[in-house]
Design a protein around this nucleic acid. Sequence first.
DNA 1: GGCATCGCTGCTCATATGAGCGCTGGGATG
DNA 2: CATCCCAGCGCTCATATGAGCAGCGATGCC
Lengths: 311, 311
Amino acid sequence: MEEELIMVRVAELYYDEDKTQDEIGALLKLSRWKVGRLLTQARERGIVRIEIVHPRARRLGLERQLVERHGLTAAVVVPSPDGDDGTLERVAQAAADYLTAMRPVPRTLGVSWGRTLRAVAESLPEGWATGVTVVQLNGGVSLNRRSGGAAGLAVTIAQRASGHVSLLPSPAILERVETKQAIEADRTVAAVLVEAAEAQAFLFTAGPCDATSAHVENGYLSASDVEELARRGAVGDVLGRYIDADGNIVDPQLDARTVGVDLGRLRAAKRSIFVTAGDAKHDIARTVVTSGLCSVLVTDETTARALLEER
Amino acid sequence: MEEELIMVRVAELYYDEDKTQDEIGALLKLSRWKVGRLLTQARERGIVRIEIVHPRARRLGLERQLVERHGLTAAVVVPSPDGDDGTLERVAQAAADYLTAMRPVPRTLGVSWGRTLRAVAESLPEGWATGVTVVQLNGGVSLNRRSGGAAGLAVTIAQRASGHVSLLPSPAILERVETKQAIEADRTVAAVLVEAAEAQAFLFTAGPCDATSAHVENGYLSASDVEELARRGAVGDVLGRYIDADGNIVDPQLDARTVGVDLGRLRAAKRSIFVTAGDAKHDIARTVVTSGLCSVLVTDETTARALLEER
DNA sequence: GGCATCGCTGCTCATATGAGCGCTGGGATG
DNA sequence: CATCCCAGCGCTCATATGAGCAGCGATGCC
């Protein structure tokens, strides 16, 4: 269309050449108002694209839609970089920013573990908060407080807020229910679990239900166990507990052998922050969001769009 | 830097969320003016990128630089598309636009030939002008007025302006000087050459000096001839005449066997429009531009940038 | 320690811009 | 052919924005 060509010329003069609307009008023999309207149209039609290029940019539009659609307290969506990868870092950085800005500062913060949360911990600046007690929400931890393992992450978060850390000295999943009950009965374990359950805020991720799961990697489950879970409808795990698309526990027996706070605590919590990045986790992310396990979502743009698609 | 992060937030609120500067100020506890300054900085630092996405967009900044640097009357630069190719079409379209908009409309327009000019001809809309006589500037033409060859292009341009066409019925390069002189002495040929030399505007392209040259393709020169020319410093041809980087004829003997208007006519002309697209032609394009053969340049962004580099 | 300087702040004021409105003219409709 | 309708126009007016300036505090230099 001829009109469109004029729009292009007008946009060039306005945005590239910094001319005012009446200068352009004079130049192209258009009224100032016509020029203004053409510019508006050019933006509407996407001829003029305004883009914020920055690793810490966000997608406020998607955030708003997510909050509305899924009844969240807040959402943080970062653009997925073109060249793929770097997504995890960006999401982690965003989660760290969210935590740092969060008011009121929680007295105790319950955390799960995983690669994603490790990245979040590393992204937190020294002094991101002060006096926060960090509590582990589920087992699977070595007792070494310096290690890079599951415990290290909680330690890092606490250290950078000059706070304390309460580690949960327990495997993630035990082989026998009796052992699990015995562990939970242990005074120190029980104390941590109570502390965790009463945390003022939760920070957690979820894992997909496939062979790459951290449970397989650490030997808590075999590849065939996971396959079986998937066959029974599991889409992934939250705090070590495998759930189906509706958020229900898939295998109550397995669940009874899993150490950590109950998923109900997440649902009931006022601030339950779910961090997820990457395409592999779309299904479990959808479940977490739709079944109300989180009140705050931190994720990448691709995941966000997937969560906004119908069903 | 912390400041930079605020810039990003401000830019998001301003450009994505259409908030006013004081709304943003209130939100982030900044003064309205601070917000304004942050936005300016964000644009300067390239955090906010405003881009005009359209096949017919232009690069006015580069155009201005080219005009200044090389003393042109005008320049038209189109963005080189990302996915490569389509460059020729965009440049051709831009040249067609330029011709259509050109005032005053020339009574006679001298044209050369080549793939590029063919594309320009095809891009010209029916009725792009009225009553323009199109004259061929150099030989190499079949007499068939309908063909898709060198002549067809001139015919197309003329037809779409409901004008006349004067074809130059001659080969591009003759084997013997005597034959060339005889041809030029022919009444019809001489008349066309005079008409061409006196054209009010010229529209031409240039060819690179390599085996892909149209002269080789059409058998006027052999691959080894071209090699020899290149060895002697030729960077390409304009109207069939091979010139070196300074714009001088490389082989006067060859030149004496070439039929067409003199390059001096282009230099002297008030409106001499040079159209070029593609990386292969950077060298010859530089020569044309720096040696004053053209007063108007139509090209792609990549070529434009090459022409703006030092030496 | 005193002083000049510089960069940043928040202001005033002029300017650029967008919302809303009444008018007009060209095309559809009876 | 008369009439209606509505899209697009140029306008008024309120608002948003940027230029330029004075004040102020930090910094560095005697």
